[in-house]
Amino acid sequence: TTVHVNGVTYHFPNPEEAKKFVDRVVKEAGLTVEVKGNQWDVE
């Protein structure tokens, strides 16, 4: 699973890890998340 955060790419072994990361980032920074298949874009 690939997560893009403001142009930076993070790779995770599974969607659960990616979701935990995204949830944390979104809570801390108040960002928006767009999910496209296995790819997350966070802005």
Rank of each mutant, 00 (worst) to 15 (best):
T9G: 04
V22G: 02
T1R: 03
T32F: 03
E43W: 09
W40Q: 08
V35E: 11
A18N: 00
V5T: 02
N6P: 01
A29C: 14
N38P: 14
R24V: 10
N6D: 08
A29T: 14
V3A: 03
H4N: 13
E43R: 08
K27A: 12
N14S: 12
K27G: 11
V35F: 13
A29S: 12
Q39A: 12
G30M: 07
H11G: 02
E43F: 13
E17N: 02
H4S: 14
T32D: 13
G37H: 12
W40E: 11
L31Q: 08
W40N: 07
W40I: 09
D41V: 15
D41T: 15
T32E: 13
N6L: 10
H11N: 06
R24C: 15
V33L: 08
Q39P: 11
T9H: 06
F12H: 00
N14P: 00
D23S: 03
F21V: 01
Y10P: 01
W40V: 08
H4G: 04
Q39S: 11
V33K: 02
V26K: 10
V26H: 09
E34F: 03
P13E: 11
T1G: 03
V5Q: 02
F21L: 02
V33G: 11
F21G: 00
G37C: 04
Q39G: 14
K27V: 07
H4K: 14
R24G: 10
D23V: 02
N38I: 03
A18H: 01
G37S: 03
G30A: 07
Q39F: 07
D23N: 04
H4L: 14
N6E: 05
N38W: 06
V25I: 14
K27F: 09
H11M: 06
V8N: 06
E28M: 04
V22D: 01
E34Y: 04
E34N: 10
K27N: 10
V22T: 04
H11K: 05
E17V: 04
G37P: 15
A18S: 02
E34I: 15
V25G: 03
W40R: 01
V42C: 07
T32W: 04
D23H: 03
D41R: 04
E34K: 03
V26L: 14
E28F: 05
P13T: 12
K20N: 09
F12D: 01
T2E: 06
K20F: 04
V33F: 09
V26C: 10
A29Y: 14
V33I: 07
V8I: 11
K20W: 05
T2G: 01
V33P: 07
V35L: 14
F12C: 06
V3Q: 00
E17R: 00
K27P: 04
V3S: 00
V25F: 12
N38V: 04
E34M: 04
N14T: 12
R24Q: 13
V35T: 07
L31I: 13
V42T: 10
K36E: 15
G7K: 02
K36Q: 15
V22S: 03
K27M: 13
T1L: 10
L31G: 14
V5Y: 13
T32V: 14
E16V: 05
K19F: 06
F21K: 00
R24A: 13
E28V: 06
A18W: 02
R24M: 13
D23R: 01
G30W: 05
T1W: 15
E28Q: 06
K20C: 05
E16G: 04
P13G: 07
L31M: 13
V22W: 10
T2M: 08
K27C: 07
E43S: 12
Y10R: 00
V35Q: 04
T2L: 08
D41L: 15
V26R: 07
V25C: 10
K27R: 08
P13W: 08
H11E: 06
Q39I: 12
K27L: 12
Q39M: 09
R24W: 15
N6Y: 06
E16Y: 08
G30E: 07
E34R: 01
R24D: 11
P15F: 14
V26W: 11
E43L: 14
N6K: 04
V3R: 00
W40D: 11
P15R: 08
L31N: 10
E16F: 06
L31W: 15
G7H: 03
K36M: 15
V3L: 05
A18R: 00
L31F: 12
V42L: 12
P15S: 12
A18F: 03
V33R: 00
K19N: 06
K36P: 15
T1C: 06
P13I: 10
V22F: 12
T32A: 11
D23C: 11
G30D: 08
V42I: 11
T1F: 13
E43C: 11
N6S: 05
T1V: 15
T1N: 06
R24S: 13
D41C: 15
P15Y: 15
A18T: 02
F12K: 00
G37Y: 15
E28A: 04
Y10I: 06
K20R: 08
E16A: 08
H4E: 09
V25N: 04
A29W: 14
V25T: 05
F12Y: 01
T9A: 13
P13D: 12
H11D: 04
E34V: 14
V5A: 04
E17S: 06
D41N: 12
V33S: 13
V3K: 00
H11L: 06
E28Y: 06
P15D: 12
G30I: 06
N14M: 01
D23W: 02
W40C: 11
E28W: 07
W40L: 07
N6R: 03
G37M: 04
V3P: 00
V35P: 01
V33T: 12
L31C: 14
G30H: 07
W40F: 10
L31P: 06
F12I: 00
K19M: 13
N14L: 02
N14E: 04
T2F: 12
V35D: 14
D41E: 14
G37D: 15
T32M: 08
V8R: 07
V5W: 12
V33N: 11
K36A: 15
N38F: 05
G37W: 15
E34P: 14
F12G: 00
F12M: 01
N14G: 06
V26S: 11
V8C: 11
H4Q: 13
R24T: 14
K36H: 15
H11I: 08
T1I: 15
L31S: 11
G30T: 07
D41K: 05
E28I: 06
E16L: 06
K36W: 15
L31T: 11
V33D: 13
V3E: 00
V5R: 02
T9Y: 11
A29Q: 14
K27Q: 11
Y10L: 05
V33W: 11
N6T: 02
V25Y: 11
V22C: 11
K36Y: 12
T9D: 07
H4P: 01
L31Y: 12
V5K: 01
N14H: 03
K20P: 01
T1S: 07
V35A: 02
E28R: 02
E16W: 11
E43T: 14
V8L: 08
H11R: 04
D23A: 04
E17I: 04
P13Q: 12
N38L: 04
T32Y: 03
T2R: 05
A29H: 14
G7D: 03
V42E: 10
K20I: 09
D23F: 03
V5C: 03
F12S: 00
V35M: 07
T1H: 07
K27E: 08
V3I: 09
V42H: 09
Q39R: 09
T9E: 11
K36I: 15
E43M: 14
V5H: 08
F21D: 01
T32P: 07
N14A: 03
L31E: 10
V5E: 01
V42G: 09
E17W: 02
V22Q: 03
R24L: 13
F12P: 01
K19H: 08
A18M: 04
E17A: 07
V3Y: 02
E17P: 00
V3F: 02
V42K: 09
T32N: 12
E28H: 05
P15W: 14
V25L: 15
V8E: 09
K27Y: 09
V5I: 13
P13C: 07
Q39W: 14
N38D: 15
K36F: 15
A29P: 09
T32C: 07
E34T: 14
W40M: 07
T2D: 06
N14K: 02
N6H: 06
G37K: 04
G7F: 02
V25S: 03
V42M: 08
K19R: 11
E43G: 11
G30P: 05
V35H: 11
F21T: 00
G37L: 11
R24H: 11
H4F: 13
G37A: 04
A18Y: 02
K27W: 08
T2C: 11
A18E: 02
V33H: 08
V26E: 08
V42S: 10
V35N: 13
F12R: 00
E34D: 12
D41W: 15
V3W: 01
D23Q: 04
V22Y: 12
E16Q: 07
H4I: 15
T2I: 13
D23L: 04
T2A: 07
E17D: 10
D41A: 10
P13R: 09
T32H: 12
K20L: 08
V3G: 00
G30N: 10
V35K: 03
L31D: 10
T9P: 14
T9C: 10
